[in-house]
Amino acid sequence: MHTVSRVLPLLLAALAIAYPWAVPNYYLVYAGALTVMYAAMSTSWNLLGGFTGYVSLGHSAFFGLGAYGTGLLVVRLGVPWAVALLVSALLVTVFAVGVGIAAVRVRGASFVIVSLALVSMMNLVVQGWRSLTGGSTGLQVPSPFPGLHRGQTHIVFFYLFLALLALALLSWWYVSRSRFGAGLRAIREDEDKAESLGVPTAAYKVAAFALSALFVALAGGLYALWFGSLDPIFVFSILIASFMVLMSLLGGVRHLYGPLLGALIVAPAGEYFLIALGETQIHLTATGLVLVLVVLFMPDGILARFTRRRAGPSIPDESAGQRLQGVTR
């Protein structure tokens, strides 16, 4: 089992690195980059959702803000793209700390609604601030690699998203083994009890919220540099966070590779539906249907089906016969 858990990541990494050179056309490289982007984002989302049980749809806002932040720094201030990407992600993380302090005071459905409100507000702000953001007409961001043709750009961004995914997976793995991670999991099971044991629940939830926002903002920034055209309706769409939730749930929120597995299924399926059904809303219906099926039949995700519990139910140490030894009527 230990050998498998050590070899599997290396095997997956080797396959991922070889992917752009193994596929027959650039469209498949593009689809791969999109899949890896969603895998990175859902793994990041899972830093909050998986550890604490807080379901955020507000991560679309961090994606959008990361994208617009990077785009604006490049376009308006002429900041080098790599610096813009990092500065934008850090600013979004600071913003997420502020939002988190207010948002994580509420739990369950109330938290979901607060996170939804955040996306709508950010969408309105970006659309309304035309002089800065370009409003509903969007923002054009120049390519950071003007010498490369579109297909080659897909390859570069495939690897950039892959690096981000590796960073997100490494963070999740590290948190899962840390004292911080144990505190977060205690929050997921029983927040009040965790607090009574001395776990600083409020600070931990905000930290998880901000950490998860950081990677999503980085993904947003890379998206802006990759696509070069930002439409506020798309980048602040609830659908982006819904995909993160769906991918995490499908793969399994309690597992390191759960969101990655979910992304490997949902993102290519989404692309297939788009090709098969065209630019209609039917592919969204299909996505919704998958979400319903997952919640109904696999609430713990696919990986939960394949991972055994560490120990079976408790069995009494002695049989009735042993206990009755020496007992006479």
Binding site: R179, D190, V199
Partner: peptide, 19 residues
């Protein structure tokens, strides 16, 4: 029963000494 059911016995006990 107030154990953290989805955590191991080890993790439960360690949480008692969290501070």
């Amino acid at each position: 029963h107030s154990v953290f059911r989805e955590m191991t016995v080890a993790e439960n006990v360690r949480l008692g000494g969290y501070t």
